[in-house]
Amino acid sequence: MRLPVTPHVVPLFYSLDEYAQQGVSGGPGKEGIPAIDTPQFVSARSAESFLRPEDIVFGVVLNNDIKAYPQKILVWHEIVNDRLGHEKVSVTYCPLTGTAMGFKRGETTFGVSGRLVNSNLLMYDRATNSYWPQILGTAVSGPFKGKSLEEFSVIWTTWGRWKQRYPETAVLSENTGYIRNYHRDPYGSYHPLSGYYAKGSSLLFPVLHRDRRFDSKAVVLGARTREGAIAFKKHSLRAKKIMEGSLGDKQYTAVYDPVLDTGYLYKNPDGKRFIYEKGHYTHADRQWEARELPLEKVNAFDAMWFAWVAFYPKTDTYE
């Protein structure tokens, strides 16, 4: 069975067996939260009928496809098995950890196991029944144990911002084949911030490690590499626009995108210095947008701090 995987390149702070053993039931059983296997899409104009400018969407640009997946739909399904250009992919969202991630899925599809590790979605691939914590992207059991999925960037932003940058975007339709109230979030609200998502709110499930450097529900922009894990507090990045960090002897630069309210992370081995001016980043008298700096981009994604540090307790942090 073909599945685009590599030997794991993400740091593992616990053994794969421990991750597997720490899995707990999230309530619904296997496939009790149904993945969307035959997604339907509508135009940006049609999406105006069910999306407000402030609604959260998860945006993807890959293989000349531009798509938006509304949080209000994925909160009920967590996985969309889709195609982007020629590639079969899964766009995934865990509402308990605030993580939206994309994976190439090859000849299989992913489903929701009904179990959690560190409160995070434990996906399984339907071809081999291997189990994959979403934040790890690495199988902790089954035939693919120890292998990591190939990932792609998923942008956490709002519908108004995404539509402004990509007016030609396609949008996941509410016509999912399931009867759900896509206008009610069972966990709370992002506008205004309330319920489970709010600062100081309690966790619902156990985690392997806790850390008080940030509030548990604070959002960080995190990345993991062969050198380890690094996280930038998103509120700080929003204010500073540029933040520098390091892992061992490797230098990194995080920059803020004011159009999408997101961040990007780059390897910066030569320590190039950029200046933020009116929405652009300047270096050596040339300007770039945040998404296109002349550096090697690292896949980074938003996560609630408690979940990030539960998987990566030795993470280097910046605020």
Results as ranks from 00 to 15, higher is better:
His183Met: 09
Ala170Glu: 15
Pro143Glu: 15
Ser201Ile: 07
Tyr256Ser: 04
Tyr166Pro: 00
Val140Asp: 06
Ser189Ala: 12
Thr262Pro: 02
Pro258His: 02
Gln164Ile: 00
Arg238His: 05
Gly160Ser: 07
Glu168His: 05
Lys147Ala: 10
Phe232Glu: 11
Phe214Ala: 08
Lys234Asp: 02
Leu265Gln: 06
Ala229Gln: 12
Glu174Ala: 04
Ala198Phe: 09
Tyr196His: 13
Thr158Trp: 03
Phe205Leu: 10
Met243Ile: 14
Tyr266Thr: 09
Ala139Arg: 05
Ala170Trp: 10
Gly195Arg: 13
Tyr187Gly: 04
Lys240Met: 05
Ser202Gln: 14
Asn181Trp: 07
Phe232Val: 11
Val219Lys: 13
Pro192Trp: 09
Tyr187Pro: 04
Tyr182Arg: 10
Gln164Pro: 00
Ala198Thr: 07
Ala239Phe: 00
Gly222Cys: 07
His209Cys: 00
Phe205Ile: 02
Leu193Glu: 11
Glu150Tyr: 10
Tyr197Val: 02
Thr225Asn: 04
Trp156Lys: 11
Gly177Leu: 10
Trp162Ile: 04
Gln164Ser: 13
Ala231Phe: 10
Ala254Gln: 12
Ser194Met: 07
Thr169Met: 13
Lys163Glu: 05
Arg238Phe: 08
Arg210Phe: 00
Pro186Thr: 06
Glu174Ile: 13
Ile242Tyr: 05
Ala223Val: 14
Glu168Phe: 00
Thr262Asn: 14
Pro143Thr: 11
Val171Gly: 04
Gly200Cys: 14
Lys199Gln: 15
Ser173Trp: 11
Leu149Pro: 04
Phe205Met: 03
Arg212Val: 07
Glu227Pro: 02
Val259Pro: 00
